[in-house]
Every structure is written in structure tokens, then in C-alpha cells.
Design a protein around this nucleic acid. Structure first.
Lengths: 202, 202, 202, 202
DNA sequence: GATGAATGAGTGTTCATTCAT
DNA sequence: TATGAATGAACACTCATTCAT
């Protein structure tokens, strides 16, 4: 991994732990093993590191979305909760890069409007859009009574959002916390499936 | 209001906006209208201001809890969603002091274990305890089928938690955001009441 | 002399030697014997030191002008070249504070419009006004033929200005340079006096 | 123009605007369109650029002097104020290269003895030598009474020097400033010519 | 109770320069 | 010829804190 990459990587880890302001260029450089002045060869200034991270996140998550959309559009595999596990849980919520950026956005949203918008979009608006549309698709396929789709989607979204803040954006992201999230998420999903008379999914 | 009070007040407002680290003693003093050295007559150091705020919050919220408990214990008035409005929404979530402290805890939880514990307790554990117990009481009173109480309580908790993060801990606390929270919360509560065959509550 | 005074004093000496940009706060503090951070108790920033110096100069020189004006207005003593020696040479050109500020303005006029204006004013416009008006007064008193006053004033001004740049704003201000200035200035003045048929003034 | 040339050219322009210290290698390279490290192929270090400029100036101005001397020695054309216009004004004072170097010397003379010497030489000593010798020649030719030559030469020199500092080394060298210089210089010259009973020269 | 004055440690950033390629 | 990458030293400035008054 080249220097620029290592700076971004280290900075993100520290930013996600303590917030942008609380992390100094010195801190980043100590970790990376370069001199402070070297940072300025790769980045215009400190803020430029943050912006680069935000841009990379935006790109990364848009790519994820594109894959997800094309997969769900072709319809070759019917929508299922397993999808969520793969695309939303594993590749988004648990992904170290994405998780750190969510923490960063969560801290910085309070004093940066640009970040606040990203925060609202990627933790609320987009998940809501995807999860409710998944339930609408399940209704189309006939798995769910059409009348309940919206309400169920909204409930699902609320439960997952609560679990994200409770377990994945609370202190350090340990395996215990991931397990707690997974356990509660699956328990919730199974109650839904039971209501639908479906089979359990562990 | 005496000087010590004004320092705490101002510090909290700034901390809630930008986080503890990002706010300087200078910033606080400029607002309060005193010299920086004067702060050290009232507080041991900067951290002491933060600790005093956390202690005051703990006291304040324990007092709230005590009132709530005694009110619900006497059973003179049956538990209802109106309670929530009064005790949980108005006196806790919307209360400027409490709301600022929640923001502060949300920002600082990532690099301070003591704050993380308070954060987990007052945003997740305690609300969960109270809200689910409210539903259990509703079940005892016969308003809700005993079998659904736990599940409904959990759903209620998840929805309210999601709304808190989405609307009350997102950017500045404006009247629009309070309204958005209230609207969505009441809409959700009404769907529950409808399911129970009860009357709407606006 | 208090700290603020000593900072200004030292800064001016260094600025006049090397220019504003080339002098660091470190340089000033080393000389004054204080820590760099202490400067910021007395001045908002580096530029504030410069501005304070310029303001003080403006005040100082306006005071000089006022004294000169009142002295020449009362007319108790007729205008003479001795006046110039006292007011313009000794109290202005040779005065260490004023001389240093002239050097500073001379260096900084190239990249600061505000300073350029002061430079033009206090090295060209005001001296021109004063010196030509002195010759007009001499004409009124009958010492000089009215017709020659303007031309002689202008020549006097040109000669003195040239001597200022040649001797007083060239390298360090040593006693030799002051002597060179005085010698040439008096020589020039004496040729004028001779032309007028007056007595020599050494 | 090759790279070395472009570096010197750009550096001079920037140095003349802001002084040597205030201009960074970065500034020069940005303008030239090369990377900072490339400068060190063409110059030993930053100071080497300055020295090269000073050397080039010395050569340039010596060449000018040689042309002027041979022209005045042959005596094929009698000395005149038109000469001054051509050699001293147009080819020296208004010449962009020379004018920039004069500014540079004016700024840097205060903290570099080598530059101070060049400054004194090319702004005072040499012009004085040339201008007074021109008046001596005019006396030889009989245009001026021998007795007045020295005095008139000195006055001429003083007036031109004052105009140089007032108009050509004051802020940026604009067409307005050149015009102001020319107007005042010609006005002065005409008063001399009038005194000599000669014809006006516009 | 409050402040004037000071400070050591640290902040982000710029600088001229080096050197392998 | 030119540059990508790095660096030590310096820069202006901010910080929380101290202490005598």
C-alpha cells in the first residue's frame, strides 16, 4: 500500500475513534511512520484527507448500490433476507471502511453541514429506500400481503436502524458487538418470518 | 444565574455543537464574558466542567425517573401514550439541557468509556426498560393481549429510538426537527392504537 | 518599559532591518526575552504588531506636525532653516523611531497598499507641502523674491529627498551617515543663502 | 526561452514585487510550470537565482554604460537632454529588467551588504557621475557658464533622483507612474533650458 | 471572585533542499 | 532534464493551565 493510501487509512481509523478535530496530523504521521511535512506532498491540507475519505466512501457505496440494484433488477434470484445479510450487513454495516466512516459522519455531522447531509443520506434515507422497496418487492412476489408491505418495511427499517446505533456505532466495533447485532437482527427477522408462516433463517 | 452556572451552561451549548475537544476555554469565556483564568476559580480544569455537566445530567434524569416511577406505581392514573409525551418526549428528549447532553454523549462516547456507559444507559438501556415495562403494564390492565406485550414494546422502542437519532440528534435541534419527530411518532402510535381498536390520539 | 512596549520596539528594529515578512515572532521574542506564546497576550497576531507601529507613527508624526504648525502660525519667530534642523531633521529624519518606520515603509510599500499610502504621504507629499510652504512664507517676509519661491522650494525639496534616500535610508543609520547627510544638506542650504546674499549657517 | 531563463525571469518579477525572502521556490515554479526539484538542476540554490540576476544586471548595465561612453567620447553628437531620455530614462529607468532590479535592490539593501553596494552604486554613485559629467561637458561646449556647471549638475541629479523614488520605485510600475515621472522631469528640464535661454524640449 | 501576564506543549502548514529515478 | 517523494527546520498561532495580585 502506498503512502497516500496509508495516510488515508490511518487517518480514518483515528478520525472514527476521536473525531476529526481531536486527531492531529502528528498523530497520523506517528502511526504511518512518516514526517508531518510529507503529508503535504500527498494532500493539500488536513481537511483534504477528510474530503478524500468522504469521496472514496461515496464512490464505494455507490458501487455497492449499483451491484445490489443490478442483482435485484435481473430478478434471477428472488429478494430475500439473505440478501440483506450479504449486501447490507456484511458489505456495508460490518465492513471496516464503511463502519469507520459512519462513526466519523456520526461525530462530525454536528459541525459540518456537508457531512451532515452524507450522514443523513447513508444512515437514514438510502437504507430506508432500499429496505422498504425490498418489502414492496416481497409483496409483488406474493410473500407478503400487499396491504402490510409499507408498514412492515417501516418497522423493519426502524428495528435495524436502532440496532445499528445500539451495537455497531457504540464504542469500538468488536466481534461481540457484531454478534449482538446479528443475534438481535435475526431474532427480529425470524419473528417476521414466523408471522408470514415462513421457515426460520439463522 | 451565577458565574459557575453560566460557565456550565455555555460550555454545554458549545460542547453539544462541536464536541468537547473542539471547544476551547477561550470560546466559553468569550461567550460568558469573563477571562480564561477566572474559570479556574470555579473549576479544577476543563475536564471538570464536563464532569460537572455529566453529574448534573445524571441527577436531573434520576429525579425525572423517580417522579415517573412514583406516578406509575401509585397507579392512580393508568399508563398511557400521553405519559410518554409528557415524561419522555417533552421533559427528556426535547428538554434543551437533556438534548444537549445526549448530543455531547453521542459525540464523546467514542473516546471516553465513562461517557460511553452513560450514553448506552440513557439512550438505550433505560428507555428500553421503561418502554417495555409500560407495555407490560398495559397488558396487565388488559389493554393489550399478554402474548403481544413484549413484541409490541420492542417495536415501539425501536421506532422511537430510530426517530430520536433521525430527527433529534441530527444537526441542530430546530422546531422543524421537533415537529418531524412528533409527527412521525404520533403517526406510529396511532397505527398501534388502531390495531388495538382504540381511539386516535393526536 | 512594559512588555508590550518592548515587543513593539524590538519588532520595529528588526522589521526596519529585514522587512516584516523576514522577521519571525521567534526573532522578536528571542530579543525581548519572552516566549512566543506571550506575544499573543499583547497582540492579536503578527500583523497587529505592524499595525500598532504604523498607528503610533501616524500619531507621533501628527503631533510633530501640530507643534510645527502652531509654532509657525504664531509667527513669533520668523521661519528659518534652523527650524528645519530642529523639526524636520532632528525630530523626524534622525529620530530613531521615525527613521526605522521610514525604512519599514520603504521595504513594505511594494506589497501592501496601506503602507504604500503612508510611505507616499510621509516621505513625499507632506515634506513637499511643508517645505514649499516654508519658502512661500520666506517670500511673504520678503527674504526671497516672490517669483522664485515655488521653484526654490521645489529644488530644496528635491535635494533633501535625494539626501534622505542616499544617506538616511541606505544601510544602517550610523553617525557617519547622519554626518554625511548634515554636511551635504548644509552645504546645499548655504549655496541658497549665498544666492540670497544672506549669512552662512553652519 | 529555455527553462533557466524562465526561472530567472519569473523570479525577478516576483522578487521585485515582494522581496527575495517573501517569494518561495514554490511561487516561482507555479508560475514557470515546473516542479520545485527541477530548479536545482539549473541553480545551486535559491540564493543562486538572486546572484545570477545581480550578475546579469551588472553585465547589462555595464554594457549600457560602454555604449553611452563611446557615444559621448567620439563627440560626433553634442551632449543633450535627449540623450538622457534615450540612455538613462528609456533604456535604464523604464527598462522592465532594470526597473525590477532596482526595486529588488531597494528592498534587499537593508540586509545584504553586497546588494547595498550595488544599490548605492547604480542608484546614486553612477547616475551622479554621469549626470554631473554631462553638465561639465555642456560647460566645455559653452552652453553653460563654467561656474554654474557643478551646481546645476547637482541640482539636476537631485531632482531626477527624487523623481525616481517618488514615481518609479513607488508601488507597481504603471504607465501612469511613468507618465508622471516623464512630465515632471521634462518640466524641470524645461525650466533649466529656459534659464539658459534655450528652446523648450517636449 | 476575578484578572493580567506568562508559559510549555502542541496545532496545521510552508520552506528550501535532497536524492534516487 | 525533469520529477516523485521525502524531510528537518521553521513558521504563525492556539491551548489549557498557573500564579501573583
Amino acid at each position: 500500500m502506498d503512502t497516500r493510501e496509508r495516510i488515508m487509512d490511518t487517518a480514518l481509523t483515528l478520525f472514527a475513534d476521536s473525531g476529526y478535530e481531536a486527531v492531529s496530523i502528528r498523530d497520523v504521521c506517528r502511526e504511518v511512520g512518516i514526517k508531518e511535512s510529507s503529508v503535504y506532498y500527498h494532500f493539500k491540507n488536513k481537511r483534504d484527507i477528510l474530503d478524500s475519505l468522504l469521496n472514496r466512501f461515496e464512490d464505494h457505496v455507490n458501487a455497492l448500490l449499483a451491484v445490489f440494484r443490478s442483482a435485484s433488477m435481473t430478478g434471477e434470484t428472488p429478494p430475500s433476507f439473505d440478501w440483506m445479510d450479504t449486501y447490507f450487513f456484511d458489505q456495508y454495516l460490518f465492513d471496516p471502511f464503511c463502519n469507520k466512516l459512519m462513526r466519523l459522519m456520526m461525530i462530525e455531522q454536528f459541525h459540518d453541514e456537508q457531512i451532515r447531509e452524507a450522514y443523513e443520506r447513508w444512515l437514514f434515507t438510502e437504507p430506508y429506500r432500499i429496505e422498504t422497496s425490498a418489502f414492496l418487492m416481497l409483496a409483488k412476489v406474493g410473500v407478503i400481503p400487499e396491504a402490510d408491505a409499507a408498514q412492515m418495511g417501516r418497522n423493519y427499517y426502524a428495528n435495524i436502524t436502532m440496532l445499528i446505533f445500539r451495537h455497531l456505532l457504540n464504542g469500538a466495533l468488536t466481534e461481540e458487538r457484531k454478534d449482538a447485532f446479528r443475534t438481535e437482527a435475526h431474532a427480529y427477522i425470524n419473528t417476521i418470518i414466523k408471522q408470514l408462516g415462513g421457515k426460520e433463517n439463522v
